[in-house]
Design a binder for these strands. Structure first.
Lengths: 223, 223
DNA sequence: ACCTGAACACCGTTCAAGT
DNA sequence: ACCTGAACACCGTTCAAGT
């Protein structure tokens, strides 16, 4: 009875679904339609299956998101580190950002779990290692990592919500409208800097921020 | 026919609901039950009303959240600033954190809108002003504010999701389990710093991070 | 073991109607 | 003007049943 299908020498009939197929389909939805479009129901539809079939391969939605992050991080290979300690630190920290910057759905994971996909652990490892190479103690290295992580997560969060807004409504954003009716008497600084707020080169700016933070931590820990 | 109720000299009958009452009730739910418990339906129930009645006083849930943030920020009075520029900068930046640190529901707003509640504008104003007093250009002041804001938002986001986790399940967190089965060969730094990760004095640590960031930006912009 | 259909207990929001 | 009930178009997840 088994393996009546032509060519296949596997035992039993193949499962219609697999964790791999589910994760791949989820990534497709996230990339094409955004995180708010990813529901178990829609994912099932995309796979020509039923919502409940998914729960046979994945514990719940949180685990699914974690698996997606894992698959994403696995696509990045661990690069060779510069030898000069500070450059190594900056490179490692920037990589954390680069790995996450292109996936807007990451916020969904941030909001539901720690960021510790197994495939991404080497990023944390490299940052800690670079920090220690710069002369920081282990406790200071952890502190440095955390500062960098907060800065990065915050940037991602804000940028993603701005993108979401833009996608939803084409009109002026809440912030634009708020700026428009600022009282210059009460808020002179906000008024005069208004033209500086529309930001452009986000990636470069983030890297500059990282360098500032790293230099500050090195300087304080050295003295 | 009007004002047949004893004592009241108002015209017409009083509205059963008001924006104020709705916002107050929403704050109560957020403080007592957390952001994931705040739904229009539950809020209506708390007010002995129907979900749809709310929409007469509030455009949608996003606007409601914004109003809640506004009411929260309005409870803080603008403090006197120190005269010394750097101390002013640190104080102003730290205040941004203090205003937000006690409201775990803030993340819900971060994820849905810019943080520009009208009542909170003076915080941004003070940070910009302090930065300029430290000798930064207007463009650099905006950059400094943004760096501080990302750092703060990231900290809030991560801390809040950790609290949420803890509230849901009492068992060891995802991160604790991940640390437990780390391969020391592959991740020596992560392994040896593991004991440094359980963090305690978050508020002090955040302030230290702020000082580091501020010093770095001042230093780079000065040279 | 793997999958299905129906159901549970929710969401935010719209619409047409009531006073 | 203010409020209501019913409905629309969704969620994640559980349960009992099918092969």
């Amino acid at each position: 009875m088994a393996s009546s299908t032509s060519g296949s020498s596997r035992l039993g009939r193949p499962a219609r679904l697999s964790q791999d197929a589910i994760v791949t389909a989820a990534q497709l939805i996230l990339d094409r339609a955004g995180p708010e479009q990813l529901s178990m129901r829609r994912l099932a539809k995309e796979l020509s299956s039923t919502p409940m079939a998914l729960y046979h391969h994945v514990r719940d939605k949180d685990e699914l998101l974690m698996l997606v992050l894992d698959a994403h991080a696995a696509r990045f290979s661990r690069p060779k580190q510069p030898t000069e300690p500070r450059a190594r630190f900056v490179t490692a920290a920037n990589l954390l950002y680069e790995v996450l910057a292109d996936c807007p759905w990451i916020v969904e994971i941030l909001a539901s779990d720690d960021l510790l996909a197994v495939s991404a652990l080497w990023i944390v490892e490299d940052i800690l290692d670079a920090a220690i190479a710069c002369g920081l103690s282990e406790a200071d290295a952890v502190y440095a990592y955390r500062t960098i992580w907060y800065y990065t997560a915050g940037e991602l969060l804000i940028r993603m919500t701005r993108n979401r807004r833009r996608a939803v409504s084409e009109g002026p954003s809440h912030r634009d409208k708020a700026f428009a009716k600022l009282d210059p008497e009460k808020y002179p600084r906000l008024t005069s800097t208004a033209s500086n707020w529309p930001q452009l080169t986000e990636r470069d700016t983030h890297k500059r921020g990282l360098e500032d933070i790293i230099d500050a931590i090195i300087a304080r820990c050295a003295k």
